[in-house]
Amino acid sequence: MAFAGNNSRALPWALVTPALAWTLLFFVLPFIAMGLSSLTAHEGGGFTLANYSQFFTDPSYWRAMVNSLEVTAIVTVISILLAYPFAWILAEQVPERWQRLALMLAVLPFWTSYVVRSYSWLLVLAQNGVVNRTLTGIGLIGEPLQLANTRFATVTGFVHFFVMLLTLTIFANLKQLSPSYRKAAADLGAGPVRTFLHVVLPLTLSGIMVGAFLTFVLCIGDYITPQILGGNNELVMPQLVMMQIGRRGDFPLASALSIILMAVVTIAYLACARWLKIERA
C-alpha cells in the first residue's frame, strides 16, 4: 500500500495531522477543561465534588433529569408510531414516479431553521393562537386551553421534527429491502399482513433502532424546543445547564451537569449497542 519515495512517510501525516490537531485542540481539550472545571468550586478554585453531589442530592435537579428522560421516551415512541406507517405509505402505496417528490415534500420543513420551527408551533399553540381561536370559534370550548408552555407543546414540537427525520430513515430502510424478500414470502403463502409481520418489520427493525437512538440523543440534548415551547414551568437538563451559565455564570456546575447528561447518553448507547449493529445476509 505504501508508496515509494522520500516523502512517503511525511506525506500521510501531513494529510491527517490538521484534522487530528483540530479535534484534539477544540474537542478533546475543551472536554478535559470541562471535566476539570466540574471538579472546582464556583467561588475560588479548590478541588471539590460538590457540583456532582449537588445534582444527586437536590431533588429539583433530579426532577430535570427525570423530565428529560420522560419527554425523550414519549417523543421517541410517538415519533416512531407516527413515522413508520407514513414511511410505509410513501414507500409502498405512492406510485414510484411520485415517491421522490412525496418524500421531499414530507421533509421540507425539516430544512427550515430549527429556532423558527419551534416558534411556528408557538403561533399554533398560543393562548390566542390558531388552535384556540379555531376551537373557540366553532364553540367547542368556551375558554382557550393552556397549550403553550406545557410538556404537551414541547412534545408536539419535538414529534414534528423527529417524525420527519424518522420518515427519512425508515423510508430508506424500506426501499433498501430487496423486493425478492416480499416476493418470496408471498410465493410461500404469506398474505400482506403476515409478510409485513414476519418479514418486513423484522428486517427494518435494526433501522428503526438506529433512528430511535438518533432521536434519543438529539432530543435529550436539545435546549431550543423545551425553552421555546415548554417554557420554564418544567425544566429539562439542557435548560438547567444553560440556566447555570446565563443567570449565575456558574461554569463548574454547568460543566458537571453537562458531563452527567453525556454519561446518561453513553449508558443508553451501551445499553442498546447490540441492537444498533446492523446484520445483513
Binding site: F27, F31, G221, V241, S255, L261, M262
Partner: peptide
C-alpha cells in the same frame, strides 16, 4: 450543547 459548553469553558 456539550461541545459549546466545552469550548466556552476552554
Amino acid at each position: 450543547l456539550i461541545i459549546g459548553m466545552g469550548l466556552l469553558v476552554l
